[in-house]
Amino acid sequence: MLLTHSCTAALEMAAILTDIEPGDEVIMPSFTFVSTANAFVLRGGVPVFVDIRPDTLNVDETQIEEAITPRTKAIAIVHYAGVGCEMDAIMRIAQEHNLPVIEDAAQALLATYRGRPLGSIGHLAGYSFHETKNVVSGEGGALLINDPRYVDRAEIVREKGTNRSQFFRGQVDKYTWMDIGSSYLPAELEAAFLWAQLEEAESITRRRKDIWQRYYEEFADLEREGKARRPVVPAECEHNGHIFYLLFRDLEHRTAVQARLREAGVQATFHYVPLHDSPAGKRYGRAQRELPLTRQMSERLLRLPLWAGMTDDEVSYVIEAVYRSA
């Protein structure tokens, strides 16, 4: 694992390491943060967007295979809200077509799929320690390398394309330009901050999961009344309490709820504008087919406040406000 200054940086490194060249296609969900796509587009790659599953909002693994063409160079998947994608199926497809899998595990620290940590299953993966994540260092990230063939080069790519790391270890007597690369390193200060955060990672995650669970249980009636749908975590996945969202009936309903929550002093946010509908997504990528679920879910989703320092009273306040607003 190599620390970076962001998950975006880790994904850019992954795009370099997988030798993405102009015109190479990378299969990915459209329901994700821009960095998943940007990293590859910077190398001239073409995102090929596929739809998401209705339950987890993760990439629909059953649509990956049909998106593979002779130009496909990699598969990039995102563990949305720290809930794992169907990795067995995805790795099977990747192996059959000899494609590397890059896990955008920005949100997935300490979450697992069939007992395995997310970020440890694909060939390469990125974590984020951005201030919005569970474990933070202001800006921050890491590249996870699960395939030995990428290790040596990763170190060089991260160090502006030089073998400075080898030089520091005394393996070479001077360092020089070896390959393409950029400045993907974090500062020492960030790393020191991150150290302290990582020491608390388990307690932070535990507290977040408690809050998540409380939301989940308390909103059972809301779901029963058909007003909103709660997140789905498949049995094979252990999540990390990163995001708690509700899916409302439609855009109109979501907008109304959000406005009422704002009046009650509760900040609830939505994401993502589907990448295939965005100006850059249209210019640089293409959708494999219509992506009805991506569009629908992005119109219906609302995230509720969730952070480790939230008090039980604050959680109760949010729950009550949601019931009054929905």
């Binding site: 209705p54 339950d55 749908r229 789905v232 975590v233 498949p234 049995a235 899916l247």
Partner: peptide, 10 residues
């Protein structure tokens, strides 16, 4: 579509 959103049954 609303059933497809529900968790897979055990």
């Amino acid at each position: 579509l609303s059933v497809a959103e529900l968790p897979e049954p055990p």
